[in-house]
Amino acid sequence: MVIVKRRELTLAERLYLPEIGRALALSLRAMFRKRVTRQYPEEPLPTNEVTRGQPRLVVKDDGNIACVSCGMCEVACPAYAITIDGGETDRAIEREPKRFDIDMLRCILCGFCEEACPKDAIYMSDELELADFSRQALVYDIEKLKRPRSALQKRIDYVNKLNDRWRKPSSTR
């Protein structure tokens, strides 16, 4: 056991007022220093290409989504957040989703869907915020998930760079 003796106050401290003045001076100085607190909702968090936000569907430059509803992301999803119903389209690709729902409350932002997608159609965006008044409103359908390719380009380039590490230099795609 150690007995710690409280330090005796000095005369200046015991006089009290000088200490008040010192504290006020500290506060005054802090007012002119650079602020470290972020005003979060007004001032968003910085994001970069490594940010794994909510998954979004890529809309190609011709206005169609790249998804062919193959169901790979549905299978890969560990949280069973994705539900897809396929259907036929007249486009050359033949198949497109008639329903593509992601339950954002189930989504754990793991990025497996992005990794599983053989058509480069789903990417993790930098969108992180999720709030609504009902659970049903947070089951996002195709219209809510669509994002133009340009909005996801940073992430697409990053994922391609990552994948290039595993590609054999000889293989062509």
């Binding site: 509803s69 193959c70 169901g71 549905e74 299978v75 396929g86 259907g87 036929e88 033949e94 198949r95």
Partner: peptide, 9 residues
Amino acid sequence: FRFQARVWN
């Protein structure tokens, strides 16, 4: 049955 379902589902 075309595009109705993925067979593993």
